[in-house]
Write a protein that binds this DNA or RNA. Structure first.
Length: 656
DNA sequence: CTAGGGTTAG
């Protein structure tokens, strides 16, 4: 609602944009569009200006591009066009063939592009160094930089010189598979053998690779040395954004803001991407007010929010359960002429899914289709997940079946959700069968797949099998994470093998893993259930000493156990401690505590808790209700206490 | 040839 106002109130239209004159120049109909665009592309100070409208018109007026690359929707279209091209006399230029190839790359169909590249070589289609660069790019994106280096040979064979683009692509390929030392070595060789001078692209690529590998410090180091360096190669807006985004994703939003604030002095004007990164960082820390302030600031700076900026807000609101606010964004977007895309609709749909409002989610799916946008695999996964959470496994299956029918490929995520649904229903055998199916179809299970499997097997008390699968998983090189062990430790506990669970817990450091709060909660809970309160408390202190934050579950478990042991004072202390630690008791905490007190006939102690619950809108659960009835039997109907309680419990309570 | 957005597990 706020954002709607911010956007609607701002006078954002093309006439306020700095490139308005260029815009009208471009959109006016003229003769000879083709030459014109070429000139504009060349001289335009705004290389990212969207020329789509124009090229659309060119297609109809100009005789030149006989091959309509715009109509390529899938690799087969490109292959058909290729067959047409090689039949043409004279053969189209190499540049036209490489344009075809890059169209397939834009569809992210890298294997198909390489297949096409092979065909080009087989059919002796003209290729140039662009073609080869594109092929290298494809191999690199498929995580095969080694094949990319092999193409380097073709350059020399065909008499082309690899250029800085070639090497940048290879550097990117190495970083993509996190082979950072080799990328550094390649960089060194470039200067040593005078192959080419690294440029802004090279450095941005390296900074990106470092961030992606989690080495933020080194990325910042490189950025700083470029800033200080005397060379002509200064960090550009890309380089800064990569670091700002890396900081934000690492939770260091304040550092990102700090760097952001220095950009002006460095002669960098923040663009929509930088603003969006900062906004996303603020949203991820739930600093929504500041995110909205940043939006206002970007509008003041005449930087137009784009669909990504808007989507970040849609997603943040949805994750916060404020779906109506998110939905209103669709209206605001229309006002500033930003078209919602599949990401917008999926985020919104997922928002409804998270609230269990599946009818609304289906409505958004329909809205997506009606807007002429094809739901993708993520849309269906999101919807499946919603139904899975609601326990509607039949709906999950329905959608899972629908995916191939919609000519989409099931991916690891959609399989994972389907598996989750099956195991949740206790259909272990079906789950294991589906798991085998995905392996057979070359959809590689990931750590989440296995964790779902372990959880399913443990839930069916098939722990031994879970451990067997663990070994096959490790043989495949997939490393178990803390979630894996939490599942197994919980499985052992639920199977009354608390000792074995504790042993496994103790082995975690030797596997390079640290227990997290959930690990502690599982074990503390299991120990409490066994009456080993002392051991549970020891673990609680161990957790604190490690600097981990206990959560509401940790406290609730312990409060319940202390009540059980009639250590009411200690339970009270713990409740105080949790509040002091900024951890608010939830409904379960109150219920557990009230039950504990009532069990010990501490009606008077329970009263303030009941009042607190009432003020926070929590209600007693069934057990606590009946215990309260029981306790009330000992109070006279006219007693002060009775009347006080009467006010606190919902109507209809006394009839039972 | 370089940067930002949507789906899954304890």
């Amino acid at each position: 609602m706020f954002l709607g106002r911010i956007i609607s109130n701002s006078s954002f239209n093309s006439s306020t944009l700095p490139f308005a004159s260029l815009h009208s120049f471009l959109t006016k109909p003229r003769f000879n569009f083709y030459n014109l665009t070429h000139q504009i592309r060349y001289i335009s100070p705004y290389p990212r200006f969207n020329l789509d409208n124009l090229s659309h018109q060119i297609r109809y007026f100009s005789a030149y591009p006989r091959f309509d690359f715009g109509s390529i929707r899938e690799p087969n279209d490109a292959a058909a066009l290729f067959r047409e091209m090689v039949r043409t006399q004279p053969l189209p230029y190499a540049s036209v063939f490489s344009k075809l190839l890059s169209t397939v790359v834009k569809l992210k169909q890298y294997s198909a592009a390489l297949h096409l590249f092979d065909k080009m070589l087989q059919r002796d289609a003209p290729v140039n160094h662009y073609t080869l660069n594109i092929a290298i790019d494809c191999y690199c994106r498929l995580k095969r930089p080694d094949f990319g280096f092999a193409i380097l040979g073709s350059f020399f064979k065909r008499g082309f010189e690899p250029d800085v683009v070639t090497f940048n692509t290879l550097v990117k390929g190495l970083l993509f598979v996190e082979r950072i030392p080799e990328a550094a070595k390649l960089l060194g060789k470039l200067s040593a053998y005078q192959l080419c001078e690294p440029d802004e692209y090279t450095y941005s690529t390296i900074i990106h690779g470092l961030c992606k590998a989690g080495d933020l410090l080194q990325a910042i180091d490189l950025l700083c040395s470029l800033e200080k360096g005397k060379g002509s190669c200064k960090p550009n807006v890309y380089a800064y954004n990569i670091v700002i985004d890396g900081l934000c994703k690492d939770g260091k939003v304040n550092d990102a803001l700090q760097l952001f604030s220095t950009l002006g002095d460095k002669g960098i004007s923040p663009n929509v991407v930088i603003y969006s990164s900062i906004i996303e960082g603020l949203c991820s820390m739930r600093r929504m007010d500041e995110a909205e302030d940043m939006l206002k600031k970007m509008i003041t700076d005449v930087v137009c929010p784009d669909v990504v900026t808007c989507n970040i807000f849609v997603d943040a609101w949805c994750k916060d359960g404020k779906v109506e606010e998110a939905e209103h964004m669709l209206v605001s977007m229309k006002e500033i002429d930003v078209q919602p895309n599949i990401v917008t609709y999926t985020a919104l749909m997922n928002g409804y899914c998270m609230l269990g409002k599946m009818d609304e989610a289906e409505r958004i799916l329909q809205l997506t289709v009606n807007s002429g946008i094809k739901p993708d695999i993520i849309s269906y996964s999101s919807l499946m997940n919603g139904y899975c959470k609601m326990g509607q496994v039949d709906e999950v299956s329905r959608l899972f079946t629908l995916i191939p029918a919609k000519r989409l490929n099931r991916d690891v995520v959609s399989y994972n959700i389907m598996l989750e649904a099956l195991f949740h229903e206790g259909k272990c055998e079906d789950g294991l069968k589906l798991f085998k199916e995905m392996e057979a179809l070359q959809v590689s299970p990931d750590i989440r797949t296995y964790n779902i499997l372990f959880n399913g097997l443990c839930g069916a008390h098939r722990i031994a099998e879970a451990f067997q699968v663990l070994h096959t998983m490790e043989d495949k090189g997939i490393i178990p994470d803390i979630v894996t062990y939490n599942i197994l430790i919980e499985g052992l506990c639920n199977d009354n093998q608390v000792k074995e669970a504790k042993d496994l817990f103790d082995k975690l450091p030797s596997k390079g893993l640290q227990p997290d709060v959930i690990t502690y909660n599982i074990l503390i809970g299991a120990l409490c259930k066994e009456g080993q309160i002392k051991e549970a408390k020891d673990l609680f202190h161990e957790l604190l000493s490690k600097g981990l934050q206990p959560d509401v579950i940790t406290y609730t478990i312990l409060i319940g156990a202390l009540c059980e042991e009639a250590q009411i004072e200690e339970a009270k202390d713990l409740m105080m401690q949790m509040v002091n630690n900024g951890c608010l008791p939830n409904s379960v905490t109150y219920n557990v505590f009230v039950q504990g007190l009532l069990k010990r006939n501490k009606m008077l102690d329970a009263m303030p808790l009941l009042e607190e619950m009432d003020s926070r809108g929590f209600t007693l659960d069934k057990t606590a209700y009946s215990m309260l009835i029981e306790a009330m039997k000992w109070e006279g109907k006219d007693s002060v206490l009775f009347n006080k309680v009467k006010k606190l419990v919902p109507k209809g309570f006394y009839s039972s």
